[in-house]
């Protein structure tokens, strides 16, 4: 089966690169440009995994993460947080709110793909 992946980021150029990367890896890719769009997409599309940017207008990645984890129906959605803020406290906060993994920008595309696969494989 093809995994469904949602990419949520407000930087258009990052979206372009990530969309290209994930499509190349054969995933079913959906896109959200802010926090509210992202939350709608998660509840509507039920993606297997979300690449979630932290600094987004509307709702921050942290808020989206928290609300997703609050809904029992969405407990299978895996969340990989992406942030340009590399402080330890930010990482700790994301994990505490229920993110499954965390990567700081800029990231290596290879590592990102590996991580995404690693997060999806055990469930398969």
């Amino acid at each position: 089966m093809t995994y469904k992946i949602l990419i949520a980021d407000d930087e258009p150029n990052i979206l372009i690169s990530l969309e290209f990367l994930m499509k190349r890896e054969g995933f079913d890719v959906h896109i959200a440009r802010d926090g509210i769009e992202a939350l709608d997409a998660i509840t509507g599309q039920r993606p297997d995994l979300v690449l979630l940017d932290v600094m987004m207008p509307g709702k921050t990645g942290f808020e989206v993460c928290q609300e997703v984890r609050a809904q029992d129906a969405l407990k299978d959605v895996r969340i990989l947080m992406l942030t340009a803020k590399g402080r330890d406290t930010d990482i700790a906060k994301g994990l505490a709110l229920g993110a499954d993994a965390y990567m700081t920008k800029p990231f290596s595309t290879r590592e990102l793909v590996q991580k995404v696969r690693a997060m999806l494989e055990p469930a398969a």
Binding site: N13, I14, I16, K105
Partner: peptide
Amino acid sequence: MSSVTHELRTPLTSIRALSELMVDD
């Protein structure tokens, strides 16, 4: 500092990702 870091990393992210994509392919 945190803001500056964020502002620097955002364009770097695109640059790195796109460059790697082109290198890979």
